[in-house]
Design a protein around this nucleic acid. Structure first.
Length: 279
DNA sequence: CCTATCTCCTGTAGGC
DNA sequence: TGCCTACAGGAGATAG
């Protein structure tokens, strides 16, 4: 669910709801995360103001600033597979799988994550926080530095499937399985093709396709699949799933040529493609 | 360094 | 209806 477009949509909806608010309280009910929630560090932020909300790849960055002093801190939130950030009333009862609650201004923000693959962590505020969660991420796919030339250069001699290459955040940040599959379709490239076999023109088309599919999905508020798990911070579902060309459409006709979409497991993850439109 | 595999955890869909 | 299995948006760890 939460890939770059979903995280960006959550960021925007949270920003509209709570940016500028004072952090009044933080409660943590850590149920054993892979990366422990720093309850004491979060509690020490009480009294600071949520100055800005940023995103790096799939990581949400909440920058807290005090009026006086130099202890600016950034909360890093990763939604994992099932994480959500939901705005609500501060005194509402805790819901199932709610792990952290921030009281900001007159609202509350809850971190809810059934599968607990997500994380809430803390770092010193910086242009790029020196935290393991973001330190080694590749370029933002919507930035100018991610282009055909870059993609062509870093794929040379790589044998990994191009779909998997796109999933590796060290190559490009924030692209998950849905949008990697969709971008490969738009570029006419089979997801299982070795990355190093991309021609220069393929790399140009693919970089462009990644940008276009992510921009389109952000405009649509992300993808809410049939399990309905993802919404923005206000509970609104996304609409990009109605535009998907291949993802989750195994056996259904290609929207371009009518050939049945194929589903194949590539590197432990489902890859979807049109055998006629993609080579 | 590169590649492939396993793992964390819960909810849901689909088969029988 | 109910039970059981397979699989799911991520990504770190590890082995070769």
């Amino acid at each position: 669910m939460p890939e770059l477009p979903e995280v960006e949509t959550v960021r925007r909806s949270l920003e509209a709801a709570v940016r500028g608010g004072l952090l009044r309280a933080v409660e943590v009910r850590d149920r054993g995360f892979r990366h422990p929630v720093p309850a004491h560090g979060l509690a020490a932020l009480v009294g600071a103001r949520l100055a800005s909300l940023r995103r790096r790849g799939k990581v949400l960055l909440l920058d807290f600033v005090r009026e006086v002093g130099d202890d600016e801190r950034t909360v890093l939130v990763h939604l994992g597979m099932s994480g959500r950030m939901l705005v609500g009333e501060p005194d509402a009862p805790w819901q199932t799988h709610e792990h952290v609650r921030f009281a900001i201004g007159e609202r509350s923000v809850r971190f809810v994550d059934p599968r607990r693959f997500g994380s809430v962590e803390l770092a010193e505020t910086a242009a790029v926080p020196s935290h393991a969660r973001v330190a080694r991420l590749g370029p933002e796919p919507l930035a100018d530095e991610f282009d055909g030339a870059y993609l062509f250069r870093i794929t040379r001699a790589r044998r990994v499937a191009i779909r998997n290459f796109l999933l590796d955040g060290q190559n490009v940040a924030g692209v998950g399985n849905i949008y990697a599959n969709e971008a490969c379709f738009r570029a006419g490239i089979r997801p299982g093709r070795a990355a190093g076999r991309l021609a220069r023109a393929d790399a140009e088309r693919l970089a462009s396709a990644v940008k276009r599919v992510l921009e389109r999905a952000i405009r649509d508020g992300g993808s809410t699949l049939s399990d309905g798990g993802y919404t923005d911070a206000e509970g609104n579902a996304g609409w990009f799933q109605t535009r998907m060309a291949v993802y989750d459409r195994g056996g259904e006709p290609c929207r371009r040529c009518g050939t049945p979409i194929r589903l194949r497991v590539v590197g432990q993850r489902s890859a979807y493609f049109c055998p006629r439109c993609q080579r």
